[in-house]
Design a protein around this nucleic acid. Structure first.
Lengths: 351, 351
DNA sequence: GGTTATCTTTAGATCGTTCCAAAAAGGCGA
DNA sequence: TCGCCTTTTTGGAACGATCTAAAGATAACC
């Protein structure tokens, strides 16, 4: 009566079919909840599925149906909490749509990005969510993924001009407005000498944030002192080291700084402390990203909330929509950011 | 002469074959670098592959060969930098072995873990790397993945007794020895009233670390005061809130604390500051994990380095070995941890 | 009983690859 | 020219699912 399940081989539709005396096709219909099958048959089949411990082989199904049930997520960096949250959001949203996340980390190397994209492509993802590595460029990406693979660019623009065929979707943060809001906030608090601290000028997001800063300064009629633009790598460590560059004596030192992101701001906090300054009392600063530490550091950091997890969910939704409508016009989504005021943005000391 | 590549459909072996007048089988041999094919034929085929922009369909190949080229990575948490680093390490090592990472996040929910495992399994990963959710248990996991899927347990043990069939590999940190080292270090510095702060007792890693603490205290003949065992969630926020529990007046307050992990230690730093105590001067503390912030916070944190990225690479290697030798005996690997002494573990104030 | 309509089931081709066994193509000595 | 060996190539059947079109049941009607 009770056949033994096959050993050393996975259970297939055929095993189930012969196990309960129906055809492969019927079992397939049961699996897909087709209304065609008779109730009694369905019950018999479902019992047999459980009995033999069947697991669906989605790869085989995808092959036949010419569909995909995965999306590739290629990130320049996973260690940064911003991207980790983003990835978690992507995975969550993809998962609840029945898709699976193919992960790829490029560690900011354009060469690895090429390799990773190529390797992931062979697994037939329906689409790709890409946060490009620093010097990645559009032509190389197009060359490896081809013109027909749906791609969603996140967070950064690709270097090089966009090729003709690449009608790629984009999901970007409103960097300029965010930096504008932060700068304006410091100005309203009474600051006049405000620096822009951290980031590299060849990063598109840094340029946009810097533009927002300039915009706010000019709107308030405040002077923009070139020495108050201090570049550094977007890491805590480098930011701490570069702190002294803010306090060259030639013009009066700034009383506040708009930082490229939270990591840089946390580094600046450290650097200020090492100089004997009390961040949030003697010197005001703002961040960007609202990572978890921003709320918990001392002083708590005024920053721009980008809601990375929600961005991840949004990215997943966008790419899934694209899968359903491959022909629709490409679109660029700019996610709003929100100023979160905390204690790091104190008013200036009245001299 | 030059056929157009097919439109709206992916290029297949057949397209290449008919494109340069050989059989499908020959093209397949070329792709796999078989020595059987003639040099001239190989060149012709390779040209055609490039010309049509062929991408290998690994899913189809895996179906035929009954192999897999992916590994599932299921994590209880991705936001924690420890796990993010770990994931990056896994992905890196899998990638360079030609495997792809199927990501799954469970957010500490055993129910989600079941769902995620089930969904990932359908994509036919060769094996699974699992860092279990808090209340996950062995029987449920066995029920969904079956006895034949290779699984590597990372970081935590599974609740419930291990079922008969589940000969699962394990990669654990040497929690007990780590906590022992931290405690011993504080004792050598002259502390006698040392607390164990943070974590929940139903977490296996917390029990192990606590055991290491007890071991060191007893080895030094120091009393273990029950009030100095303060439980809290392993987050910065909860740790900050629970700080006051260390300073109930009944016995003399402790002068140092061994913290469950870095997150808790950072929370404790915050809590101490809020009470007007200077961590690293008035009170000594140690962490566990050596996350990036440990080096950069104030004061820099004495902690145990677990090298999460290396652990990730190690986990990938272990699961890949298991794939090659499914029958080998299961093994439990305990990764060493290393004490990193920084400024948070000051000597006690001589009263 | 025969015809029609409705409800269920199924054989066989198919997706894009690999494997197998066997065929074709060439080279060489007799 | 023939057989024999080596080097290349190839048709067709897999892998595990889905789809199509058609066949079997069953019920209903005249």
């Amino acid at each position: 009566m009770s056949n033994t399940p096959p050993i050393g081989r996975k259970v297939t539709l055929n095993d189930i079919a012969s196990g309960c005396g129906v055809s492969r096709a019927t079992v397939s219909l049961v699996l897909r909840d087709s209304p065609l099958v008779n109730k009694l048959t369905r019950i018999r089949v479902e019992q047999e599925l459980r009995r033999q411990g069947y697991v669906y082989n989605r790869a085989a199904a995808n092959l036949r149906r010419r569909t995909s049930s995965s999306v590739a997520l290629v990130l320049n960096e996973l260690t940064n909490p911003f991207f980790a949250e983003f990835a978690a959001g992507v995975d969550e949203a993809l998962g609840s749509a029945g898709f699976v996340t193919l992960l790829g980390c490029t560690s900011e190397s354009a060469a690895r990005e090429q390799a990773v994209l190529g390797s992931l492509l062979e697994h037939g993802p329906g689409g790709i969510i890409l946060s490009p590595a620093e010097h990645s460029n559009a032509h190389d990406v197009l060359a490896t993924i081809g013109p027909r693979t749906p791609l969603l660019l996140f967070n950064r623009e690709l270097g090089g001009s966009l090729p003709e065929f690449a009608h790629w979707d984009q999901l970007m943060l409103d960097n300029q407005r965010g930096a504008f809001l932060a700068t304006e906030h410091l100005i309203v608090r009474g600051h006049q000498r405000i620096a822009f601290f951290g980031g590299h000028h060849d990063s598109s997001s840094c340029r946009q944030r810097h533009a927002g800063y300039i915009q706010a300064m000019q709107a308030a009629g405040l002077p923009v002192e070139p020495l108050w633009r201090v570049e550094c790598a977007p890491t805590r460590l480098d930011a701490a080291h570069r702190t002294s560059a803010l306090f060259t004596t030639s013009p009066a030192a700034p009383t506040a700084a708009v930082c490229y992101n939270d990591a840089v701001a946390l580094g600046l906090i450290l650097g200020l402390q090492q100089r004997g300054l009390r961040p949030g009392q003697d010197f005001a600063l703002t961040g960007f990203d609202d990572i978890a530490e921003a709320e918990l550091c001392m002083p708590p950091l005024t920053t721009l909330s980008t809601a990375p997890r929600e961005r991840g969910q949004q990215a997943a939704k966008l790419i899934l929509q694209r899968l359903q409508q491959p022909q629709a016009d490409s679109r660029k989504t700019i996610a709003p950011v929100q100023l979160v005021v905390r204690e790091s943005s104190c008013p200036p000391i009245v001299a």
